[in-house]
């Protein structure tokens, strides 16, 4: 089972991964297989006349997590959404009818619809690059080395297995093959303590 690791403690939100993926796969405007989500929130406390702010803002780079429980594959009526032997999930263009059911099911917005072809599209973990022995485009592009990929057991052994941080959904839904090194201000999933500051970019 292949997966991703993301290190939120070093990501500075530069979106190089987003651009590298767009470039590699020639993605049209509006389709972003890898996105960088800004999560922000906070408040202040008063002591006497002094207001002390406690605010947070951090980034999460997210693509498809090639989940262990891929709800997108389960709901697909055509079996176009396919899981490979190595656990990666891709869209078979010869089968997809563009019903967009997978889009409703995935809580990470990984499947994205291309209105021109009438098909769903999504991250395939750069299958061709991997076959050629290269790293996925997004992983190589990150100047902060915040992304890593590989067999999920190895990633978990190396980085730990945490992945329940806002704005990511409760991982029990799809069992994502994703591990996250949290930002120091990371908020636990489900608390809704902040909000996504760049909804148009994801």
């Amino acid at each position: 089972m292949l997966g991703f690791h993301f290190d939120a403690s070093v990501c500075n939100g530069c979106k190089a991964c987003n651009m590298a993926c767009k470039d590699k796969h020639d993605l049209p405007v509006g389709i972003n297989w890898r996105r960088v989500v800004e999560y922000t929130g906070g408040s202040w406390s008063m002591s006497g006349n002094v207001a002390t702010p406690s605010v947070f803002s951090y980034y999460t780079s997210i693509a498809c997590n090639h989940c262990e429980n891929p709800v997108c594959v389960q709901v697909c009526p055509t079996t176009a959404m396919t899981q490979r032997e190595d656990g990666t999930v891709y869209v078979d263009d010869d089968k997809c009818v563009g019903c967009r059911y997978c889009e409703w099911a995935c809580p990470y917005s990984a499947p994205q619809f291309n209105a021109d072809t009438g098909h769903m599209t999504k991250c395939d973990l750069c299958a061709d690059y991997r076959d050629a022995g290269q790293d996925p485009a997004c992983v190589s592009a990150c100047p902060a080395r915040a992304l890593d990929w590989g067999p999920i057991e190895e990633l978990r052994a190396k980085y730990g297995s945490d992945n329940a941080f806002e704005p990511l959904p409760d991982p029990s839904i799809t069992l994502p093959n994703l591990t996250v090194t949290p930002h120091r201000d990371a908020q636990p999933s489900g608390l809704g303590t902040g909000h996504i500051a760049n909804p148009k970019e994801i």
Binding site: P77, T78, C96, G98, C99
Partner: peptide
């Protein structure tokens, strides 16, 4: 009209084992 690619429409039965849409 909900299917965006009618050419592949015959595939919609394939997923019956897991997909409620099928």
């Amino acid at each position: 009209f909900h299917m965006n690619d009618v050419f592949n429409v015959l595939n919609v039965f394939r997923g019956w084992e897991s997909s409620w849409l099928s």
